[in-house]
Amino acid sequence: MTLSRDDLLGLGMIVLAAAYWAAADQIPVSLLSDAVGADGVPKVLAVALAICGALLLLTTRLKRQPAEAPSSDRDEKRAHLRAAGLLAGLVAYIFLLPVLGYPLAIALLIAAVAIYGGTRIRPSVAAVAVAGSALFWVFFVKILGIGMPTGIWAAGF
Protein backbone atom coordinates (compact mmCIF):
# COMPACT_ATOMS: atom_id res chain seq x y z
CA MET A 1 0.00 0.00 0.00
CA THR A 2 1.08 3.55 -0.49
CA LEU A 3 1.89 5.87 2.33
CA SER A 4 -0.11 9.05 2.63
CA ARG A 5 1.49 12.34 3.49
CA ASP A 6 0.26 12.05 7.09
CA ASP A 7 1.84 8.61 7.35
CA LEU A 8 5.17 10.02 6.26
CA LEU A 9 4.80 12.89 8.69
CA GLY A 10 4.03 10.51 11.55
CA LEU A 11 7.01 8.32 10.74
CA GLY A 12 9.22 11.36 10.37
CA MET A 13 8.21 12.62 13.80
CA ILE A 14 9.00 9.27 15.41
CA VAL A 15 12.46 9.28 13.81
CA LEU A 16 12.98 12.89 14.88
CA ALA A 17 11.90 12.04 18.42
CA ALA A 18 14.43 9.23 18.56
CA ALA A 19 17.23 11.45 17.28
CA TYR A 20 16.32 14.19 19.74
CA TRP A 21 16.29 11.69 22.60
CA ALA A 22 19.73 10.47 21.58
CA ALA A 23 21.03 14.04 21.50
CA ALA A 24 19.46 14.74 24.90
CA ASP A 25 21.20 11.66 26.25
CA GLN A 26 24.53 13.17 25.23
CA ILE A 27 24.06 16.27 27.41
CA PRO A 28 26.79 16.15 30.03
CA VAL A 29 25.61 15.73 33.61
CA SER A 30 26.63 18.64 35.82
CA LEU A 31 26.83 18.63 39.57
CA LEU A 32 25.15 22.03 39.47
CA SER A 33 22.08 20.36 38.03
CA ASP A 34 18.75 19.61 39.69
CA ALA A 35 16.75 16.42 40.05
CA VAL A 36 15.01 16.94 36.70
CA GLY A 37 18.32 17.46 34.96
CA ALA A 38 19.23 19.27 31.79
CA ASP A 39 17.97 16.28 29.80
CA GLY A 40 14.73 15.75 31.77
CA VAL A 41 12.36 18.05 29.93
CA PRO A 42 13.84 17.26 26.49
CA LYS A 43 13.29 13.53 27.07
CA VAL A 44 9.67 14.13 28.02
CA LEU A 45 9.27 16.15 24.84
CA ALA A 46 10.84 13.35 22.80
CA VAL A 47 8.38 10.81 24.20
CA ALA A 48 5.45 13.17 23.63
CA LEU A 49 6.52 13.73 20.04
CA ALA A 50 6.84 10.00 19.41
CA ILE A 51 3.36 9.42 20.84
CA CYS A 52 1.89 12.16 18.65
CA GLY A 53 3.63 10.66 15.62
CA ALA A 54 2.16 7.26 16.40
CA LEU A 55 -1.29 8.79 16.94
CA LEU A 56 -1.06 10.41 13.54
CA LEU A 57 -0.26 7.04 11.92
CA LEU A 58 -3.11 5.45 13.81
CA THR A 59 -5.77 8.04 13.01
CA THR A 60 -5.04 7.98 9.31
CA ARG A 61 -5.47 4.20 9.42
CA LEU A 62 -8.76 4.43 11.34
CA LYS A 63 -10.37 7.21 9.39
CA ARG A 64 -9.77 5.64 5.99
CA GLN A 65 -11.30 8.68 4.48
CA PRO A 66 -10.62 9.30 0.82
CA ALA A 67 -7.25 11.00 0.71
CA GLU A 68 -7.45 14.71 -0.03
CA ALA A 69 -7.72 14.63 -3.77
CA PRO A 70 -4.21 15.49 -4.88
CA SER A 71 -4.56 18.48 -7.17
CA SER A 72 -2.01 17.28 -9.64
CA ASP A 73 1.29 15.67 -8.95
CA ARG A 74 3.01 17.54 -11.70
CA ASP A 75 1.86 20.96 -10.47
CA GLU A 76 2.95 19.98 -7.02
CA LYS A 77 6.39 18.93 -8.15
CA ARG A 78 6.83 22.09 -10.15
CA ALA A 79 5.93 24.20 -7.12
CA HIS A 80 8.49 22.36 -4.99
CA LEU A 81 11.16 22.90 -7.61
CA ARG A 82 10.33 26.59 -7.87
CA ALA A 83 10.57 26.92 -4.10
CA ALA A 84 13.86 25.02 -4.05
CA GLY A 85 15.24 27.35 -6.69
CA LEU A 86 14.32 30.41 -4.65
CA LEU A 87 15.85 28.82 -1.57
CA ALA A 88 19.07 28.15 -3.49
CA GLY A 89 19.19 31.84 -4.39
CA LEU A 90 18.83 32.83 -0.74
CA VAL A 91 21.53 30.38 0.32
CA ALA A 92 23.79 31.82 -2.35
CA TYR A 93 23.13 35.27 -0.90
CA ILE A 94 24.32 34.10 2.52
CA PHE A 95 27.59 32.86 1.06
CA LEU A 96 28.13 35.84 -1.24
CA LEU A 97 27.31 38.48 1.37
CA PRO A 98 30.69 38.39 3.16
CA VAL A 99 32.54 38.33 -0.18
CA LEU A 100 30.66 40.84 -2.32
CA GLY A 101 29.64 43.12 0.50
CA TYR A 102 26.12 44.21 1.39
CA PRO A 103 25.27 46.78 -1.32
CA LEU A 104 26.22 44.54 -4.23
CA ALA A 105 24.83 41.33 -2.73
CA ILE A 106 21.45 42.86 -1.91
CA ALA A 107 21.17 44.42 -5.38
CA LEU A 108 21.90 41.03 -6.97
CA LEU A 109 19.35 39.37 -4.66
CA ILE A 110 16.62 41.85 -5.62
CA ALA A 111 17.31 41.52 -9.34
CA ALA A 112 17.68 37.73 -9.27
CA VAL A 113 14.46 37.13 -7.31
CA ALA A 114 12.49 39.56 -9.46
CA ILE A 115 13.65 37.82 -12.63
CA TYR A 116 13.10 34.38 -11.12
CA GLY A 117 9.59 35.51 -10.18
CA GLY A 118 8.81 36.30 -13.80
CA THR A 119 9.80 39.90 -14.43
CA ARG A 120 11.06 40.34 -17.98
CA ILE A 121 14.78 40.99 -18.28
CA ARG A 122 15.16 44.65 -19.18
CA PRO A 123 17.58 47.42 -18.22
CA SER A 124 14.96 48.80 -15.82
CA VAL A 125 15.37 45.70 -13.63
CA ALA A 126 18.96 46.65 -12.97
CA ALA A 127 17.91 50.23 -12.30
CA VAL A 128 15.28 49.24 -9.72
CA ALA A 129 17.71 46.80 -8.08
CA VAL A 130 20.40 49.47 -7.76
CA ALA A 131 17.91 52.00 -6.47
CA GLY A 132 16.58 49.47 -3.96
CA SER A 133 20.07 48.60 -2.84
CA ALA A 134 20.91 52.27 -2.35
CA LEU A 135 17.74 52.80 -0.33
CA PHE A 136 18.50 49.77 1.87
CA TRP A 137 22.09 50.84 2.32
CA VAL A 138 21.13 54.35 3.40
CA PHE A 139 18.51 52.99 5.77
CA PHE A 140 20.44 50.16 7.42
CA VAL A 141 24.02 51.38 7.23
CA LYS A 142 23.76 55.16 7.32
CA ILE A 143 20.67 55.76 9.45
CA LEU A 144 20.69 52.72 11.73
CA GLY A 145 24.46 52.29 11.79
CA ILE A 146 24.39 48.52 11.23
CA GLY A 147 27.85 47.15 10.43
CA MET A 148 26.80 45.37 7.24
CA PRO A 149 29.58 43.31 5.64
CA THR A 150 31.68 45.39 3.27
CA GLY A 151 33.17 42.40 1.49
CA ILE A 152 36.34 42.66 -0.50
CA TRP A 153 35.92 46.44 -0.98
CA ALA A 154 36.56 46.97 2.72
CA ALA A 155 38.29 50.31 2.24
CA GLY A 156 35.50 51.86 0.18
CA PHE A 157 32.67 52.10 2.68
Binding site: L97, A112, F140
Partner: peptide, 20 residues
Protein backbone atom coordinates in the same frame (compact mmCIF):
# COMPACT_ATOMS: atom_id res chain seq x y z
CA UNK B 1 2.83 46.05 -6.89
CA UNK B 2 3.74 43.30 -9.38
CA UNK B 3 4.30 40.11 -7.44
CA UNK B 4 7.88 39.27 -8.49
CA UNK B 5 9.05 42.67 -7.27
CA UNK B 6 7.12 42.36 -4.07
CA UNK B 7 8.69 38.99 -3.32
CA UNK B 8 12.14 40.34 -4.17
CA UNK B 9 11.83 43.34 -1.86
CA UNK B 10 10.26 41.40 1.00
CA UNK B 11 13.09 38.87 0.90
CA UNK B 12 15.70 41.63 0.67
CA UNK B 13 14.11 43.31 3.70
CA UNK B 14 14.05 40.04 5.61
CA UNK B 15 17.68 39.26 4.85
CA UNK B 16 18.74 42.79 5.85
CA UNK B 17 16.54 43.09 8.94
CA UNK B 18 17.58 39.72 10.34
CA UNK B 19 21.24 40.53 9.89
CA UNK B 20 20.69 43.82 11.72
Amino acid sequence: RPKPWLIAFILALVMSGVYA
